[in-house]
Amino acid sequence: MKILVCVKQVCEPETAFSFEASRPWLRQPATVRYQMNSFDEYALEGALLLKEGLPGVGLDALSVGPARAATVLQRAQGMGADRAIHILSQDEPEALALATWIAAWARAQDYHLILCGAMSQDAMQGLVGPMLAELLGLPLATSVVKLELRPGQAAIYVERELEGGWRDCLELPLPAVLTIQSGINRPRYPSLSNLLRAKQTKPHTLEATALPAAPARLELVAVDPPQRTRAGRRLEGDIQDKARQLAAILRERALL
């Protein structure tokens, strides 16, 4: 059985962006720290748990991104993925383009299961997994918070998280695509021995430009700072001053 997990490299949430009046509108600082999208960590852990519970599972981790994305693939291998696939691309492509490249790779591989995170932490679009399912013509379950696959079974049982504490219970024939919601498991840390091994092997690398392209369907025309919906008064001074001001304001409003 072969499983594919798609992992994205994201800049850490604390990244300080600066706004500009013209393209590219948003700039990152010179040094940015990157990490694996947290939803993908849950997807990867889900795949690792399946691999541990079933005989003969091969687990591939795939990332689309520039050269620096190799570090998330190393982390994925450090956690226990068998193979790393790197689709090298330049700037951030549209979700459809990305899904089209991944589909081109996956078509030739006979995966039984493809797992993605429910969305990426930074863009929060939730598009790649569902688009991939559509392009491959595979059944899809999004926002999965429970999955069970017994040895020899041709279908996977999943629960999707809905609003208001409800879950949708489904059985999908394999092959299938799932998008994994946070909290489904506790992602493990990479092991040192796996990490060392990962650093010695090179990922299987493909150039995005050599893969089928999707037409651009969106044009980014501006990036604005977010709107404020409230006063947003910033307390100034040292930490004691701020503590004093907060207490005074809360007392004034009879909240303390």
Binding site: T15, W25, M124, A216, L218, V221, A222, V223, P225
Partner: peptide, 25 residues
């Protein structure tokens, strides 16, 4: 609506910015 085109705004970059898109389809 800007210059006769519809623009759609959504949060992006860890919700620290609003990205404005026009459809090219």
């Amino acid at each position: 609506v800007q210059d006769g085109r519809l623009l759609f705004g959504r949060p992006a970059w860890h919700s620290k910015a609003v990205a404005q898109y026009a459809a090219a389809a």
